[in-house]
Amino acid sequence: MKSIYFYNILLAMTLPAGLSFAAETGKTDAICASQVLLPALFRPSAENVTVYEPSTRYSTIPVQMGYGERKVKVADAYVIYETIPATFGEVTESIEVARERVEITTLPATYRTETKRVKVKDATQRWNPVCPAVVASEQSIPAHCLINVPAVYTDVTREVIDVPARTIKKVIPARTETITRKVVLQPAQVIRREIPAKYRMVKLAKVEQGAKVSTTQQPARVQAILSQQTLRSERIVQRPALCEPTVSPSTILRLQQHLQQGGYYQGTPDGILGPKTRAALTRFQEDHQLASGAITVETLQKLQLQ
């Protein structure tokens, strides 16, 4: 059946305008070789776009302090004599009560939002439904018969790192406490009396475990953007089609009825090849990837009018 179909198509292209195409259609409508617009062919595809860049996250384990007490002598033992009392002096000392340590502070990364424009469909052309069929013997198709369809874009919002994460080290100096103690300068003589030493308990702080910084990697996040990849660009070709000046109203009426059944033609079929019929025919051809611009034989076969 396919070989008979292609044979009839080649036969129709060789027939001069005005001859009957009764071998294929069984009607008296003539077949002409017309210039038509073969639509572009697209294939759905997906493109991954990064919407969140990878980064490093820092977390801090604070320093662990320990506390204890230390016994500090604040007065030496001495001896008092009844005859000559002892003489004393004072000594001032600085005692470290908290050691020097390092504190680490982490600052998270900051982000900024930017928009990226992504093309999801290339620009193409479509046939103007108000234009009549163009006979192949004419030099070119009128410019207003081809409508430029612009490319389709979409905007993708993503977050990128503005300032990376960082750490700040702060040195906390050691803390000391001043202790004044009494010492014997001259012991007593003659009568000996011992005075015991005096002590003071001082609280001490020390670092048992220093601060630590741990890092974790935050993976990137991507978003799939649906687009259409062009497999074939639109082009002007020659196809066998009904000669519009001689097409019969009954053929147009049947065409309108079939287009109305498919939901393309709105209104009452009247057998007139007007703008409403051309627009419905063009929409049907575009939806079924058929060449538009004329009532082609392949369109009639798709509509089951043969």
Rank of each mutant, 00 (worst) to 15 (best):
V183A: 13
S140C: 06
A279G: 06
T180I: 12
R239G: 01
S248Y: 05
C243R: 10
E114A: 05
V237Y: 09
A188I: 09
A241V: 01
T157C: 07
P187Q: 06
I84F: 08
Q229I: 07
S59G: 11
L253N: 13
F88I: 04
L11M: 12
R101W: 10
G293H: 05
P187E: 01
E138W: 04
L300M: 04
A224Y: 02
S248C: 05
K121G: 00
G210I: 02
Q209W: 04
I31C: 06
D29Y: 03
L41F: 06
A33V: 06
T251E: 04
I272F: 12
F42H: 04
T115C: 05
E24Y: 03
V149E: 13
A224P: 01
Q238G: 08
P187R: 08
E234S: 08
Y199I: 08
W127C: 03
I295L: 07
V297M: 11
M1T: 15
I31P: 00
Y111I: 03
Y7A: 15
A46M: 11
P129V: 10
K119M: 05
A174P: 12
Q35D: 00
Q304C: 11
C145E: 03
Y52C: 05
Q256T: 05
A174S: 15
K119C: 04
V51Y: 03
M65Q: 12
S59Q: 15
P245R: 15
E24D: 02
S34N: 10
W127T: 00
L15H: 09
L15I: 09
